[in-house]
Amino acid sequence: MSDPDLTADLPPSLVEARDVRVSLQGTEILHGVALTARPGEVVALLGGNGSGKSTFVRSIVGALPTTAGTIDLFGRPASPASRARLGYVPQRVSAAGGVSATALEVVTSGLLGSRDGAARFGARLRGLVPPRDAHARARAALRSVGIEDLAKRDVSRLSGGQQQRVLIARALVRRPKLLILDEPMAGVDLESQVQFSHTVGHLKHDGVGVVIVLHELGAMAHHIDRAVVIERGCVTFDGPPPKDLGVHALPGHDHEHPHTDPPSRDGGLGLEGP
């Protein structure tokens, strides 16, 4: 459970999305979906490929415009300023760009943008340059995900799991009160999965709300407080996951198969099995 002292200044809902609709190239992808996350709560956003999970989180973080509905962050309508206390880990294959960059440089870039929630012009200008203690904070974020020793390494030379940890550190360096992760476990080695699970445990204790897009609960199962299932752009389930059975117990997942089966493509919710 989260520490009440650490969540005292936070509103009851860190994110509250209501009736959100998103269209891409004229096709409606999300048909009025909703989501809330409270301080210290870990919410899993589940669903098959193409169900709209990533579209939903991308609309929450401002990467995609909504066509209808409302999204409040920290009790205020979502805006660049209200995203000051938001950490985001996008879904991606690699943390590398066209030019070599060290893990420290990538994490430091997370310190830009809105910092204090102010929408003033001066505050936005200050957000264009890193703060003075940027390197110390970036190193601390890398330490929190167990890879401080890789700070000066070129991210393109790191393993997939290490690159993912760099991206998580880039989100954590903002000291977020709400962390949104889009499939952070995809293609990640076991060591990084275990490390990430520890990180989420610490964040939860510190009162940070976590929204995490997953294909399966897997190593995260014991941290998840609530599961929200999206199917074809609609929320079909929102409630506590039965932890003993993981994804197989969710409503709509009406078949049983051993865990060595290949991913489900058409059964139940379209959720992929482990």
């Binding site: 973080v61 401002g62 990467a63 660049p80 938001l86 985001y88 996008p90 870039s109 943008g113 264009l128």
Partner: peptide, 12 residues
Amino acid sequence: HDQEFARSTGLP
């Protein structure tokens, strides 16, 4: 480096 992340931080 990462336009989507930059947008989430409120960068213009």
